[in-house]
Simulated scan of single mutants.
Amino acid sequence: MNKRGFASDNFSGVLPEVMEAIQKVNYGHSMAYGGDPYTAAAIDKFKELFGHDIDVYFVFNGTGANVIGLSTLTQSWNSVICPSTAHIQVDECGAPDKLTGCKFIPIEVKDGKLTPELIKTQLHGFGFEHHSQPKVISITQCTELGTVYTPEEIKAICDLAHKHDMYVHMDGARLANAVASLDVDVREITNKAGVDVLSFGGTKNGMMLGEAVIFFNPELSKNAKYVRKQSMQLCSKMKYIACQFEALLTDDLWLKTARHANKMAKLLEREVRKIDTIQITQKVQSNGIWAIIPKDKIEKLQNEYFFWIWDEHKGEVRWLCSFDTTEDDINGFVALLKKELC
């Protein structure tokens, strides 16, 4: 499958700058397990972005990042509150449940976003030995439905969590798209808003592989290195992950790519809204569109431009744009939609 479709930003290739960075470090010998200068340089890039009072751990993938972040904050008798649509709830095969030992409490949401009012329904049983103890609220930015939390919304959730001696974990697999959408400093929706631990995504934004777990309070990360090792996420040749992040965070490349993906989604939205047989179901705030289309047309459309079905009962599908999506891709797909659906 070489033709660009709209299934996922995971389907895209690797940014040229990232590939060049990998090639540059691919010579000579370096200390393993993060003792190399490339890992140090990448951590410095993150400190430029978020401030110096942070702790950074590189891992292989997003599930690993989420597991390490959550495991470091919890004990097995704790519970984690999350949206019903969250990746940790739906798409990680129970890895967070198994490896943290925690109870996960999903809350039904319409737009992927938790609110203090929804969360408060689950804040009970504190100190009661028969009840799992709420410890973490996990939110996703951008959400699994492409929507975006504002800084004020995140701060309200963080304030509520900290009031109850709880922490906030953010799954930021597509954090770059949220920052680009809101046009704010990344700190405004992370550490300044009160987020305690962040899974910072790289793979969906042009890296070959790799994510980062960022602790905004180093006191919380005392055991993170042991959790990472036990979770089989400690990369021996860490320079190959780290150098990608250094490239991605240089000259705001991570934001340029996200802005482009968001722009392509807006272009697709504008054209799709002209087709009466398509119903867009969520606000288009990042790089994705969720839409209901005639079920009997889905397979034929997928054969030309592959995409995923989101809800097969409703005929709801998801179209995601990537750093390498072009206007020609959009125009070709829209022409196909018009041909089959109009």
Rank of each mutant, 00 (worst) to 15 (best):
K239H: 04
V334N: 02
P116F: 08
F128E: 11
V56M: 07
F323Y: 15
E246C: 05
E17A: 13
T39I: 04
Q279F: 06
N217C: 06
K113Y: 04
P218K: 04
V197H: 09
H313F: 14
D183S: 09
A42V: 03
E153N: 08
C235M: 06
F245T: 04
D97I: 15
N26R: 15
N26G: 07
S221C: 04
L49E: 11
T115P: 02
M207D: 09
H260P: 00
V59M: 03
S71Y: 05
E108A: 15
V317G: 01
Q285W: 00
I105A: 10
L220A: 04
F333N: 12
I293A: 00
G5A: 12
G202A: 12
S132E: 15
T121I: 10
P16G: 12
H52P: 01
W254M: 07
H29F: 13
A161F: 05
M1L: 09
K297R: 11
C342Y: 12
K239Q: 05
L182R: 02
I81F: 08
I154R: 03
D91W: 12
K239D: 01
K295R: 08
S231H: 03
V317Q: 02
G62F: 06
T72G: 11
V179M: 09
G127E: 03
F11E: 14
R273I: 02
V25Q: 05
S71N: 03
E153R: 12
T203D: 01
W254D: 07
L209I: 14
D196Q: 04
A242V: 07
K120L: 08
N78A: 10
A95H: 13
K222I: 02
P116M: 02
D9R: 15
G201C: 08
G210S: 11
K266F: 01
Y167N: 02
D183Y: 04
F128L: 15
M264D: 05
L198R: 06
R273Q: 06
V148F: 08
M238Y: 00
A247L: 09
A41F: 08
G172K: 11
M170K: 03
P218D: 04
Y27L: 06
I139A: 12
A242Q: 07
N287S: 14
E271D: 11
C321I: 01
A95R: 15
C321M: 08
G288H: 00
L123M: 07
N177E: 06
S236P: 01
V272Y: 01
F6E: 00
H124N: 12
E108V: 15
